[in-house]
């Protein structure tokens, strides 16, 4: 049986990789890919904790109540989809107006 710590370590590694991509890449699309990696790491953590610690056969009103981790991960999916849709729309709009997708060139709000 693979212990919980192994899953958590894989998730931590994936999160660190995504963080490096978000911090060090210049292309805004590459930064978005790094954010996707980080969201996936979070999902691994949520589902692993659910699987190892909280699945329960307890029920209220005839419904099982032990699905918190999976339900939370499903909401993370929704947020990720919304984030990527808006983010890519912003990138395409920026490309159309400024002819750049480099994150540090997009600095109009700075000055």
């Amino acid at each position: 049986m693979v212990p919980l710590t192994a899953y958590l370590l894989v998730a931590a590694g994936l999160f660190s990789l995504g963080m490096y991509a978000a911090l060090a890449r210049r292309n805004a699309i590459a930064i978005l890919m790094g954010i996707e990696l980080m969201l996936n790491a979070v999902n691994i953590n949520l589902v692993a904790f659910w699987r190892f610690l909280t699945p329960s056969t307890a029920s209220a009103n005839g419904l099982n109540v032990g699905m918190a981790g999976q339900a939370f991960a499903a909401f993370v999916f929704v947020v990720a989809a919304a984030e990527v849709a808006v983010g890519l729309a912003l990138i395409i709009s920026m490309y159309r107006n400024r002819r750049t997708v480099v994150a540090e060139d997009i600095d109009t709000l700075k000055y």
Partner: peptide
């Protein structure tokens, strides 16, 4: 695509 000039900071933080 090239890296940000401050990429060592990114590695360090990660």
């Amino acid at each position: 695509e090239t890296s940000n000039p401050r990429w060592p900071v990114g590695i360090a933080v990660a």
